[in-house]
Design a protein around this nucleic acid. Structure first.
Length: 293
DNA sequence: CAGTCGTGGAT
DNA sequence: TATCCAAGACT
């Protein structure tokens, strides 16, 4: 195995990205910071293919943060459609309101200002600062974590949560200048998304296969703590999902409709109350709910 | 820190 | 068919 020096990794990955980067609406010189920010919210735990049409419709309707901030949270939730995790729509709306109030309607460029916005955690703050403003930040998403786990640490998959060591490795590999660091961030993400995938990595197409510690070690299987699968059938998440689907389809959700969608009374009522508490629904009258106006 | 929070395509 | 997984954030 060749020595995986930072310079060698940079050259290989940046060269590969130059030839294989996807053309996405939120990339390129024409993409506004708002477009990047909307994409980052939508892409949290959601595949690119499903985000594309919603992102386009969203920016067509709300070209700026102020446009979204002036509309209702209910319309944001409706436009969110079936992307999943609809609280992200509420947080994006709240972030737009905060941008109008605190930043004169312009998406802030600093990591700290971004991190202070609703729905923006470490990853999203770093991603927006990097992709929209060309700042130098460690952008640690699931793709980058997997690429570094394999190429540098020699293991199949990263730990369930980001470790200190992991962040140190990523920091040590970050190029010195802002522009190269920003490209490195998006390039390593793209490599993880297209080549170094979770299920079936395409090592034959990988620009750093020569330098990959996992490959050199003979592809040892993951031996970390068991990764918890997400239960679904019969859970509150499934119940909430069905109730929200009803609310998107109808202006008013009645008790009869809710009962048909979820027969178990206790869980149904608990979930309705939870959705109201979250701000995803409002109770118009007893037995009638709707998206918040 | 571990649990919670949607959705649907791929294997 | 059941499981895994997809640019995480929040409590």
């Amino acid at each position: 195995m060749d020595t995986p020096t930072p310079a060698a990794l940079h050259e290989a990955v940046l060269g590969w990205y130059d030839d294989h980067a996807r053309e996405l609406p939120w990339r390129g010189v024409q993409a506004s910071p708002w477009s990047v920010m909307v994409s980052e919210f939508m892409l949290q735990q959601t595949p690119v293919a499903r985000v594309l049409p919603v992102h386009e419709a969203w920016l067509d309707r709300w070209p700026t943060p102020a446009d979204l901030a002036a509309d209702t949270t209910g319309e944001a939730v409706r436009m969110w459609g079936r992307l999943g995790y609809p609280r992200r729509a509420l947080r994006l709306h709240a972030a737009a309101v905060a941008i109008v109030e605190r930043h004169d309607g312009a998406v802030p460029s600093s990591y700290d200002d971004l991190l202070a916005l609703p729905g923006v955690g470490d990853y999203t703050a770093a991603a927006i600062a990097s992709f929209a403003f060309g700042r130098r930040h460690v952008v640690l998403d699931t793709n980058v974590r997997r690429v570094l786990a394999r190429a540098v640490s020699g293991v199949e998959l990263p730990a369930p949560a980001v470790t200190r060591t992991e962040r140190d490795v990523a920091t040590s590999l970050l190029p010195d200048d802002d522009a190269t660091a920003a490209t490195w961030a998006v390039a390593t993400m793209e490599l993880g998304a297209l080549v170094c995938t979770a299920r079936q990595p395409d090592c034959g197409a990988c620009p750093i296969a020569r330098m990959c510690a996992w490959r050199a070690a003979g592809f040892p299987a993951y031996d970390g703590p068991p990764r918890r699968g997400q239960a679904w059938a019969g859970t509150d998440r499934q119940c909430r999902g069905r109730l929200m689907a009803l609310a998107r389809e109808h202006d008013i959700v009645t008790t009869a409709q809710a009962e048909a969608a979820w027969p178990e009374a206790g869980q149904r009522e608990r979930c309705l109350a939870g959705l109201v508490d979250d701000g995803l629904l409002t109770q118009i009258t007893p037995g009638r709910w709707a998206l918040p106006g």
